[in-house]
């Protein structure tokens, strides 16, 4: 069963003079096992939207159904929330316990799992995020490097075996190698745990690499939604909006303006090179 969002509207300080509508009439579905990339400016409503997915905020109007559980209902919310794992932008917001092991087991403990099941899950989560058990289990999370903290925070959520994994800017502040590693890790969870992933990122290059579906938010409404190829073929519009479309998509659009005849839906450098290879022999030249 999917996450279904129906005509969701959310207004901060509803009814007051400072009322501000962050999300307006948004409907979307996140299917099992799907990788959804969520893109938009600061202030486009992304954060508000993902906080609705596990009931941290409840709709002003409309509905959020997680596998049929209505997130506006207090009792159903607990069941829905158990299905949705949420990783916030900075690991510093969640790490608190004495050791990495204890910190990762916080979520599973709250789920009231049996001790040996918790132990098994913590070990598996650490393996999945690439933290060596013997080296890190007894370390304080506050002694770790930025990248290791990020892994620990991820493991804390992974150990809860979420059916939907929601990631808010999981690569923010990491160096290129760190970004590649985290992205590869997320792909890995998906394969091994079969979970759906909703990833918020400013970097469309990162989203382009893994997403099945891309949703672009603008001023609290869905501006565009579709496959990466569909969305990134509108790279000029995205660029105008102040977003950063994948480089290859912008390049392809620029080359088309200069008279290159390229197929639609190019958003990786590899695909662009493939398309340009046809020009090499000169037989396509006008």
């Amino acid at each position: 069963m999917p996450i279904v969002i129906e005509k969701l509207t959310y207004t901060y300080q509803s009814g007051s003079v400072n009322a501000f509508t962050a999300i307006m009439d948004v409907s979307l579905t996140i299917h099992d096992g799907e990788f959804v990339g969520l893109i938009g400016h600061t202030g486009s409503g992304k954060s508000t939207l993902i906080q609705q997915l596990n009931g941290l905020m409840q709709p002003t109007s409309g509905k959020v159904l997680v596998d049929g559980f209505d997130m506006s209902d207090k009792k159903q919310r607990a069941k829905g929330r158990a299905l949705v794992g949420m990783v916030f932008q900075y690991p510093d917001y969640q790490l608190f316990d004495e050791t990495v092991y204890k910190d990762i087991s916080f979520g599973p403990k709250n789920m009231k799992l049996a001790p040996d099941e918790i132990d098994r899950r913590v070990r598996e989560a650490m393996r999945l995020v690439g933290l060596d058990f013997d080296e890190f289990a007894e370390k304080s999370p506050f002694e770790l490097s930025g990248g290791e903290k990020r892994r620990t925070a991820l493991a804390g959520i992974i150990a809860m075996y979420p059916k939907y994994l929601v990631l808010d800017e999981p690569m923010a502040g990491l160096d290129p190698a760190g970004r590649r590693a985290v992205l590869a890790m997320i792909d890995d969870f998906r394969k091994q745990l079969g979970c759906a992933v909703v990833m918020v990122s400013h970097s469309m290059d990162d989203i382009a690499r893994s997403a099945d579906k891309v949703i672009v938010l603008r001023d609290g409404a869905i501006f565009a939604s579709g496959t990466p190829a569909e969305i990134f073929s509108r790279s000029d519009e995205l660029y105008e909006m102040g977003l950063e479309p994948p480089f290859a998509a912008r390049m392809a659009s620029e080359l088309k303006r200069h008279g290159f005849r390229l197929p639609g839906g190019i958003y990786t450098n590899e695909a662009l090179a493939d398309a340009l290879a046809a020009y090499k022999g000169g037989d396509l030249n006008v």
């Binding site: 390049m251 080359l255 340009l276 030249n285 006008v286």
Partner: peptide
Amino acid sequence: LEEISDNLCRSLLKN
């Protein structure tokens, strides 16, 4: 982007 585009226009688009 601009430099590559210029370059490709010169090398691949021989009008």
